[in-house]
Design a protein around this nucleic acid. Structure first.
Lengths: 208, 208, 208, 208
DNA sequence: CATGAATGAGCGTTCATTCAT
DNA sequence: GATGAATGAACGCTCATTCAT
């Protein structure tokens, strides 16, 4: 029995290490520019071994994405824990998202690239469904807070999920814009200040 | 002679057709996943011919981008023309941006991809400078309107360009999020309604 | 009538100019690395025009070679003119060869490359025959001088042409060796001194 | 385990086979005119496999060269072994060079082409240094013999290396000339006789 | 389970040559 | 006669993937 457990454990560890290495490379170089060879070399495994753990390059990439989303959801859970007022919840989620970007830039970018990138083909339905569910989960944290604001009549009645999309999209867009190759030069504010501004503007804009 | 003029005209037409084909493919598949071969096949020209019109893949891509930015700036110019109140200007710019997305989805995406991609190498300095200038130009339309609002004390005093980034980023993020491969399914609102909401929220949020 | 003559004259001039441009490029970059496009640009003619004057790249290259050989033969003729003693003739030819190398390095190299290079295919029999005849012509200058030495019993009786090959080959080999990418560093003598030495050695060696 | 040893052995064999095929093609067609595809087809391997054994085309070519030089140096070492008189040494080296040409024509030509080609770029410093050192090594065999002749006053005092260049260049030039595409036809002597002649002439010419 | 040699399709790019004008 | 746009085969090289060991 113990022998089997050990095997399972070791598999998990190895899988983790592969993802760890891949994360850095994918982030630094993008999906296409990163080769399975590079990843293999970085984890000090053979190329063939990678295929024992992931069906193909796309699934490896997408698995990474899934991990990132899980992590983000954990952070969102922490962010709303103990908060009772919708404004506080939204503010807290906003900063948690920003902090997640700071702490896990690779995940943040991979996450984004996935939705607009070249990856969708070649991954299994199962994996895709998991990603989808995880995305809904994230948005729920936001829409729940918004729904609270509506229920106590502090926000104009509307579909909470749509408003959640607006909020999430706004923050994401601002971060990505700030990250853009050439824009930073003429933006006087730091990203932190930009985030502060946008959270203020959005919450202010939501209120009746 | 007319002969030379015809040649110039034909060159322009062909160049246009190449860009047209490339636009679709780059949009559908992204930069890396699109090959010069595919583009050539789509315009029914030989691979070699592409290189008579564009120095390399990157310049072809960037030329596309530049066209898109010029187009957008034209729309922004039209949008603010005749408007005297900052709120109207911002609203109008917002809808122009949305309309631009509807009319030129490929451009919209290519534009965005550029700023976060690996394209910058291999293109001439001249081309890069033009792109940069064009980007600044776009943002100026927004920041000018914001500056007006500040000058008449209707917006909290701040750096107008930073606020412009927040606005631009928000709309972009929302559109991209909506476009995301898997999200549309559970968003009840159409993109149009989302845009309306976000413009309302953002303008409301800006006001003192 | 005059109109036709002018045409012929102009053709010759243009042909000359093409060869002139090609000579420099072929020498600097080698046969394969030089493109017809480069040559066309250098003479400020269109690519197509080149093919009106030369059947293909190889024939252009070989025509160049033929010119070089003609030039060399002229120099050899001058070198032996007025000399009556075989030693003087050989010495003079040797220095003329060296001088030809100094003055027409491109020709010298093209000449050599031809015989051991990648060119032979694709050229017309006629052109090939001309090159062959020109080569024999050059060697005759040397073998004639050698034959003289034999006839007055100052050189061991032998086949003069074979001896000519030895002399010609020796000088060519020394020059090429000296020109080699990495040898010059540790050769204390200048090429001129090397040539002097080898002429001395060879003539000394020939004498009974 | 034997498994690893077998792998190493097999790698060596395959490497050898690639070099073998490349040698013939490079000799027949020259560097530029030979494609990796051709080599691959000749060894019945895929193009990609070639790159598992050699970093690029230039390194493959240069590796070939290096092997040839090592081989030649072995022959030179054998040639001078047991010889005590400088004349004998030179004669022996000369014939060893000729024999090397007979046995390894491809090597002989590749060796020579290297020094006047466009290969130097794209190869590692290490490989280049090895080639350089090997070339010097070869010349030393000759210059040492010459130096002996000078030390016992049988050769005019001079720089031995310069004289070595003259000797080496002469023989090389003669062989190459004889090999030239069109010359052999009218040279009555076999290459062997030419070599004999030239060795005689050169040694005779060296003596005081 | 892990390896790494091998594959072969594909990449971006170049270029000698042709041919309609 | 001169042009230059167009071709298409070929180039060196990469890389995701497979499979015998």
């Amino acid at each position: 029995m113990g022998i089997n457990e050990r095997r399972v454990r070791e598999r998990k560890i190895r899988r983790k290490k592969i993802l760890e290495a891949a994360k850095v490379l994918f982030f630094e170089q993008g999906f296409s520019a990163t080769s399975m060879n590079q990843i293999a070399r970085k984890v000090e495994l053979s190329k063939g071994t990678l295929y024992l753990y992931f069906k193909n390059k796309e699934e490896l990439y997408t698995s990474l994405l899934l991990e990132g989303m899980a992590l983000l959801n954990t952070e969102f859970a922490k962010a709303v824990a103990g908060k009772t007022i919708w404004v506080e919840k939204l503010r807290s989620i906003g900063w948690a998202y920003y902090q997640f970007f700071l702490d896990h830039q690779p995940f943040f970018h991979i996450n984004f690239q996935f939705h607009h990138g070249e990856i969708t083909k070649n991954i299994s339905d199962d994996l895709f469904q998991k990603c989808y569910a995880s995305g809904v989960h994230s948005l729920n944290y936001i829409s729940n807070a918004v729904a609270e604001g509506m229920s106590i009549n502090e926000i104009h009645d509307d579909d909470p999920m749509s408003v959640a999309i607006v909020l999430w999209g706004s923050l994401t867009g601002i971060i990505l814009l700030h990250e853009g190759k050439d824009h930073r030069k003429f933006i006087p504010d730091s990203l932190e200040k930009l985030i502060e501004k946008s959270i203020d503007i959005l919450i202010q804009g939501l209120k009746k």
